[in-house]
Design a protein around this nucleic acid. Structure first.
Lengths: 337, 337
DNA sequence: GGGACGGTCTACAACGATGTAGCCTGTGGC
DNA sequence: GCCACAGGCTACATCGTTGTAGACCGTCCC
């Protein structure tokens, strides 16, 4: 049987509350008493029962992170960063996978695990326009990543438009004029697909390059496989791109793969740039130029905002939106000729 | 304020315990009563306070998964599989990253979060020979993956020796005779590096191919970068391999990268095979032949064993060791000439 | 010398659920 | 008509901690 505070108290000859005070660092305790209590804790190998503290204080020390899929490298690396940032604040992370399914995302928001966690970092994919009121929850939450929602909730996001624009400009700067884009969601405006497409369009306009519908590669889910098939479709349709901006790295790697299978040289025939800066792109063949969206900064900021929300019991905080810094990581897939 | 069982009980005109019974599916309740309670729950939007239940029952419904790093694709995909398997059993997963650091692995075992979780799935890397007694913990635990420990604890592992042997035989079957191996940990026997090296050796012996020290590529951490530098070292040393067995996929991808940078053709000049079957290898250039160690089977089995341990309060269960099925996934990096 | 005050500590209630014991009521068997 | 018994429910204690109120002691100041 595990020891309780009571056992420790008896052994140290003090009240339970004093043990509690020692454990929680309450300052007004005589040194000798504190030493006795600590010794008793040591001897009994006492461990605080978190469940009991939770019940009493209403805090759990756990935050939830809801992401689409851990098997997507970006989210795995994001989770890594979040866990480390949370660790630094003494928090533990509980991961929920939504599988990009709307129903699972709603479940996360419904707060079924509300009592288990102090707050939620949420990276939604399936929710979108018209779901604003669903995000008006009564527990601490910070939205992560890409979608834009009204200013009713804290939001840490990457610079989708600017990053996409910079990526496209990077390709145009190589002298490429037939720049395809992969990952388009037709009709979407507020999602990351819509925003990144806007950045792409801005870059073309600024450079005076005409808009060409045939260079738009659609892809619903942003996986390696969908990137590969979007590229295949672009090639088969005769669009003849000389560069590709893939809206994330996973698709960019699919694009590289498809090009390589067909014997098309990268970057000589087609230059490729991605978005996300996952580790994988550093060792692909050729290595992948990409937009680094500031993943660690996003994780750290998000955890910090969440902690602030949790501390602010009155609910008086006003929602904030934070944009992370981005930069282009230049590698071989866009090496100048 | 969130509603409690007391609120529900008052509204339904029954005792708290009856509400508890309804919530927990206790059978002997009149239909009309059950309906009244359910209605009250609905009206008040009542959610069970898990912390309180935890305190009373000692169960939390959370299991911990301790892995080295989520940013390593294999562990991200393993986590994905574990979360899904746990979900199917109504369990939530809390992920701990040990960063392969011995001190963090010990912390996990010390059970600091014992009160927060019902059990632990543990994939140790830094612990090894001589640490057996540390694994003799007094909470439910299942060891995952690769290292072998004495039979005092449940263990779900991949077939390291057999898989490595099959991988090496696959290369030998292509007619290659100078088969390098990457990821060697000199002196190690029980770890996955030691076991996979044994499989490699067995395959060579069976084929009558002489053992050549110069074909052993060392790599402490099994990352892409260490795979690349081990390959660079092999090439620079003049070992002149015509095939490489990388002990995991991450290193294999680093190997592919290094070969490509040097203009060495795969599989024509050097054939490459990995181990783990991460998604990434399917879209690398060229796509990566690998050993599929049965990741999902491992995850499902591990969760099942853990659930059994948790249910078995008496601690009468006898430790089991389960080996997952493996198979070779043949892709282009070992395409016959 | 008495009152104010801060430091140190204790007793007790409370968080929200569940386990245990036991009270009714109705049914069936003898 | 009485007892045994099961179904349906309630009352109360309890899990291990923390918040609140207050007791006690010594110091300091007027």
């Amino acid at each position: 049987m595990a020891a309780t505070m009571n056992d420790v108290a008896q052994r140290a000859g003090v009240s339970v509350k004093t043990v509690s005070n020692v454990v929680n660092g309450y300052p007004h305790i005589r040194e000798t008493t504190r030493a006795r209590v600590l010794a008793a804790i040591e001897e009994l190998d006492y461990q605080l029962n978190v469940a009991a503290r939770n019940l009493r204080t209403g805090r759990t020390g756990i935050i939830a992170l809801a992401v689409p899929e851990l098997s997507l490298p970006y989210f795995a690396e994001l989770a890594d960063s979040v866990i480390q940032a949370a660790d630094a604040q003494g928090l533990t992370v509980l991961i929920e996978q939504t599988g990009s399914r709307r129903e699972r995302e709603l479940e996360v928001l419904s707060g079924a695990r509300r009592h288990l966690t102090d707050g939620l970092l949420f990276s939604p994919l399936a929710l979108g326009d018209g779901d604003e009121q669903l995000l008006d929850v009564d527990f601490p939450m910070v939205l992560l990543g890409e979608r834009l929602f009204p200013d009713t909730v804290d939001h840490v996001t990457m610079q989708n438009v600017e990053g996409a624009r910079a990526a496209t400009e990077h390709l145009l700067g190589l002298g490429r004029r037939r720049v395809a884009v992969v990952g388009v969601h037709p009709g979407e405006v507020v999602g990351s697909a819509g925003l990144r497409l806007t950045g792409y369009r801005q870059a073309l306009e600024a450079a005076g390059v005409p808009w060409d519908e045939s260079l738009l590669g659609e892809a619903g889910l942003w996986h390696r496989s969908t990137g590969a098939s979007a590229m295949a479709h672009l090639l088969d349709s005769g669009a003849a791109p000389d560069a590709v901006f893939a809206m994330n790295d996973a698709m960019a790697l699919g694009v590289l793969h498809e090009l390589q299978v067909r014997g098309i040289r990268v970057p000589d025939d087609v230059a490729v740039i991605g978005f996300d800066a996952v580790d994988e792109g550093e060792y692909s063949n050729p290595s992948l130029t990409t937009v680094d969206p500031g993943r660690e900064q996003i994780a750290e900021t998000a955890v910090r905002l969440l902690v602030e929300q949790i501390a602010d019991k009155r609910g008086t905080h006003r929602p904030r939106r934070v944009y992370a810094d981005f930069r282009i990581l230049e590698r071989r897939s866009t090496l100048p000729a």
